[in-house]
Simulated scan of single mutants.
Amino acid sequence: MKNFGAKIFKDKHKLNRLLKLAKTNKYSAPHLAKIFLCERKTILGILNLCKIKLKNLGKFKKKYFCNDNFFKTLIPSSTYWLGFVTADGCLYCGKNKSKKFQIALKESDVGHLRYFKKALNSNVKIYFIKSNRSAGFSLSSSVIFDSLVSLGVLPNKSFSMGTVSVPNNLMSHFIRGVFDGDGSLSGERITHLQIAIVGHTPLLRQIQNIFIKKCGVKKVNLYPASYANGCTISRLQYTGSQIFRILGFLYKNSTEETRLKRKYEKYLMFKNKFPLSFRESMEQYKNPAKL
């Protein structure tokens, strides 16, 4: 061991103590070097000769953390954010092939980002971009990345997106997330009220099938919105008083943390502005068919 701290560890008691501490997997090489007043490479050399590897060798504590298992088990809150990520999130591989997740919104919706941070139990910092008045955050988590992919959210989803795997009893939460990210609510008169969602065609067809079964609306044509890289972006829209059945379905059992404030307030405004149409629409379909 003359090349690896022979003088320091000539004492067998010191050597045995080093090996004993290393086998506990509680000490890093720098920590052991401080204990024995030697260099890190000396510790690594001795342990290498003794065929002992430190469990945390080469691993560093992440600066920003989150609940990596957030999307592994779907519940109402995680399902809502899955829908929101499907609409406004992005999965990509950064430097050193690290798997990253990013989301960005209008700066005025930064409060909603804070709800997402809280749900993820994350300390990540929210960034602001003045040029386009947006806000967002990015996290490095291979577990979240892989969980989202397994559920149907693909990397670079702007170019490829199919259906998403969500339990039937949680679909209202998922679609509400998609609506908050890529949907709109507009109109001044009852006949002009409109709810619309823009997205990849397979996903919109999946959403429309849920609306047909749960809200008693009819099948409508999807309107092409754009076409790029072999993928069609379409628009699903419903008009008139029937939108109240859709919105009632989407907002049922929602919470302040799992709905975008400005869209929910517009729904309440329509509901108060057209109370008769709201009641008639809901009475027409009191018992939606089960999936």
Rank of each mutant, 00 (worst) to 15 (best):
S281W: 07
I126P: 02
C66V: 01
K20W: 07
H173R: 06
L170C: 12
K20H: 04
K273C: 03
K214L: 13
L82I: 07
E39F: 01
Y238W: 03
K95A: 14
S131W: 01
N69K: 12
A225C: 08
I190L: 15
Y251R: 02
K117T: 11
V153W: 03
E283Y: 12
K214E: 15
N209E: 11
K20R: 13
K55Y: 04
T239F: 02
L37D: 09
K252S: 07
L32I: 06
L222Q: 01
I52V: 13
S150L: 10
K7S: 02
K290C: 12
R133M: 06
G5K: 00
G199R: 01
E107H: 11
A87L: 02
R259G: 03
Y223M: 13
R235H: 04
S140D: 12
P275F: 00
L236A: 02
N16H: 14
F116S: 12
M282E: 05
M1Y: 03
V217T: 11
G136D: 07
K271Y: 11
L19H: 04
K95W: 09
K290S: 15
C90M: 13
Y251S: 06
T239A: 04
C215P: 12
T255Y: 04
T258P: 00
K99F: 00
H13M: 14
G89A: 05
V85M: 13
L37C: 07
L57T: 14
P167W: 15
S150P: 04
V198S: 10
Q194G: 06
C231D: 12
K263A: 10
D146W: 01
N209Y: 04
P288Y: 05
A135D: 01
P76M: 04
L19V: 13
K261M: 10
S142W: 15
Q206Y: 09
T42H: 00
K34G: 00
K130L: 09
K62A: 13
S98E: 15
K7E: 05
S172L: 07
C66F: 02
L91Y: 11
V149K: 14
I212Q: 05
T86W: 04
K97T: 05
A87M: 05
G94S: 03
V149Y: 11
R245V: 13
K214A: 15
L113E: 02
T239P: 04
F179H: 08
K10I: 00
S184I: 02
S160R: 06
Y127A: 12
N229S: 13
